[in-house]
Computed example of a mutant assay.
Amino acid sequence: MPNKTAVVTGGSRGIGRAIVLALAGAGYQVAFSYVRDETAAMELRGQLQAQGVECLALQCDVASADSVRAFFERVEAHFQRIDLLVNNAGITRDGLLATMPVKDIVEVIQTNLVGTLLCCQQVVPGMMRQRGGCIVNIGSVAAQKPGKGQSNYAAAKGGVEALTRALAVELSPRNIRVNAVAPGIVKTEMSTALIGSQEEEIQSRLLIKRYAEPEEIAEAVLYLAERGLYLTGEVLPVNGGLKMP
């Protein structure tokens, strides 16, 4: 179908940026959101526009229902339709639960889980009218194989996996597929900051002795969107064979 439109949340850096580039390379028009890094967002938008890709970059905090609503209103006004939603935006606030500030619990669940729900809620009516569409949520290996200090993040991403399955059931009569990708450790600024002194221990748990490149996660998203047409309600692990300690 010509002029397919994809929306990627948290698309200016890291995994999100790789997803935006992969989708643009596959022929999608792309809208993506960013929270703070306007410089990176404008650089990516400029790169795509120079390649002739129709691209929209807008500020949006997925933790805010009002911000999410305004973002999707602008996207739909510009492109008229949304064929693919990739819920990538997320944050971490790792720490031991016994001493974790309530703020860190609430912010992680609000952004990673509630934010994903809010974005799905915005695209579903249009996809139902079109009688077709695709949603890909970005989960995490932490939902199934969490590390120490990840109780808030693991709970949020576990919720994303459950949401993926429930929404697939709800939307299948309208030809809308819902799946998730669950990355392991990916070479991004966020991961580098979190790994710190634990690198040797983490490497020992990987069957494939390296971290994933952002582009490898983007390829999994592209597969679910374009080629995995008999998949819905599934979570695709891309974690290098990460073992429990």
Rank of each mutant, 00 (worst) to 15 (best):
Q59V: 11
A77N: 09
P146L: 05
A26Y: 00
A182R: 04
E216P: 11
G184E: 03
A143D: 08
I109W: 01
V68Q: 00
G241C: 08
C134H: 06
L56R: 14
L48C: 11
A143C: 11
L222C: 14
R17P: 00
D104M: 06
F71P: 08
N239F: 00
E76W: 05
N175M: 03
D104P: 05
L48W: 07
G14M: 12
Q144Y: 09
P245W: 11
I138S: 05
A155G: 11
A57C: 14
L97W: 07
E200P: 05
E219S: 15
D66N: 13
G228P: 10
T188C: 11
Y153Q: 02
G10P: 07
L96K: 13
V8L: 10
L117W: 14
P245M: 12
V169A: 10
I105C: 13
I105H: 14
A98Q: 10
E219D: 15
Y153F: 05
E219Q: 15
R69A: 13
V86F: 01
M127Y: 04
I195V: 15
S151Q: 04
M244D: 10
L222D: 03
G10D: 02
N175H: 12
G196V: 07
G27S: 07
G159F: 03
L44F: 09
I138K: 05
N152S: 14
Q47W: 12
V160E: 07
T116Y: 06
K157D: 08
A31N: 08
K209D: 12
R74A: 11
L206P: 08
L21S: 04
V86P: 00
P146M: 04
E43V: 11
R36T: 12
V108C: 12
F71E: 06
L58V: 10
E216D: 11
Q144H: 12
R13T: 15
R174T: 09
L194V: 14
